[in-house]
Design a binder for these strands. Structure first.
Lengths: 222, 222
DNA sequence: AGTCGAAAAATAATCGATTTTTTAATAAAT
DNA sequence: ATTTATTAAAAAATCGATTATTTTTCGACT
């Protein structure tokens, strides 16, 4: 047994995590209303913790809440994706710059490790939530020492938003290959403390991801 | 009567609004645990909608939630205030620049109106939530046409965070007077489409506000 | 045929009570 | 005197049922 006791886990927090994952995985159709009693059955939990989780997700931006008529999955739009992409460039660029200036030796090892794990996962052809976790971890490690809790919070939120689009979009192997390559190069530039180079590459990286993500909006790549 | 029916208002949404106001007003001591049953009595509502509101506020960042041990009002720290101030400069500066480039004639009139109302309120010595509402409205109007829903969302969130500090701090009449003056000048520069001038002034404005807000951390002004 | 309105069904929101977990109080032991 | 174990009290989380609101259905009427 991993633990004798589920310390610090409530029904609501458990459902929040599961629902968040399922929303990022695109298990619910965009625009759909969530059938609360169906969720109740599916996750085998009572209404109170379920509704608490839904309220958190709505405040976080992964659900829309309309008083007296429940919760729905936000629609996807080209305009919003553009917004998210632009904000990612601005905020992650800012964070990366600061991280490169402030990151210490321990950051270097964490970054090296995260990049390595991601590379091995790429080579092994790993997909799904395992790969997603390593990918998110790499990007988070990259900007972690930026020194701003609020900046990291906003970046994480934008990542979740972006992922709704990206994970739904059809894969484009050539781009995916280039994206994988960029992860390694981002690490290299960061370790070299090359602020300008890293920022430019991160911009390219987000732009390339965006071209993939566009596939979820029924638009062609630019 | 204003409305024949409370359209689109639930107990939870009502409590959310009231609690948010009370948190910004500093009605709860930072670091304190919220006594849920006391809140239940005070706001005269049942546990379910109350807990839903608390969950929203925690996801929004105005409360901290620890599983199995309820909700508490986040502590105030000089470090966090610095973070919030720095992020406000970055995000509002970005938004203002975009707003000035994209704002149309209608924006100009709204901005003029908001600045006028705020000025009249200043002259009339208005204080409390009425002044706060006009002040928030002015700053929101200033950046509204920036074109990014997410940017506006983050800015609003940071404003709420900043206000927890500012409203708690002792007033400094000379600074307050200068801040009032800056509002008018910000409007002028924005209407003149002076991107650089407006950005610089907004930076100064936030910095000056920050000097006031520091008073809530038991620190002297810098 | 289409529109309007009443009744029925479905869904959301809320309530009061119960269960679980944490915190505080007390006593026993080193 | 401090620590540890036990119990009592308090608080948080959850449950099942009830109430309020919205949505759908159905039939009368134009």
């Amino acid at each position: 047994m991993a633990e004798s006791r589920n310390v610090g886990v409530t029904g609501a927090s458990r459902i929040f995590d599961m629902l968040r994952q399922d929303l990022l995985d695109g298990r619910f159709a965009a625009g759909d209303k969530l059938a609360i009693s169906a969720l109740r059955d599916h996750y085998d939990v009572s209404l109170s913790p379920l509704r608490e989780a839904l309220n958190r997700l709505a405040a976080y931006g992964l659900l829309e809440q309309e008083n007296q008529r429940g919760f729905r999955v936000p629609r996807l739009s080209r305009e919003e994706l553009d917004d998210i992409m632009t904000m990612r460039k601005a905020l992650e660029g800012m964070a990366l710059e600061r991280a490169i200036l402030q990151g210490d030796a321990e950051w270097e090892s964490h970054l090296l490790a995260a990049a390595h794990r991601l590379k091995r996962a790429d080579e092994a052809g790993l997909t799904g939530n395992e790969w997603e976790a390593l990918h998110a971890e790499f990007h988070h490690t990259l900007v972690r020492p930026c020194g701003s809790v609020w900046l990291l919070r906003f970046i994480a939120q934008l990542h979740d938003q972006f992922d709704r689009y990206r994970r739904l979009a059809p894969a484009i192997p050539e781009i995916r290959c280039e994206l994988d390559r960029q992860h390694g190069e981002l690490m290299t530039l960061a370790l070299e403390r090359s602020v300008e180079g890293a920022r430019e590459l991160l911009d390219d990286h987000i732009q390339l991801s965006y071209r993939v993500a566009l596939g979820s909006c029924g638009e062609q790549t630019t």
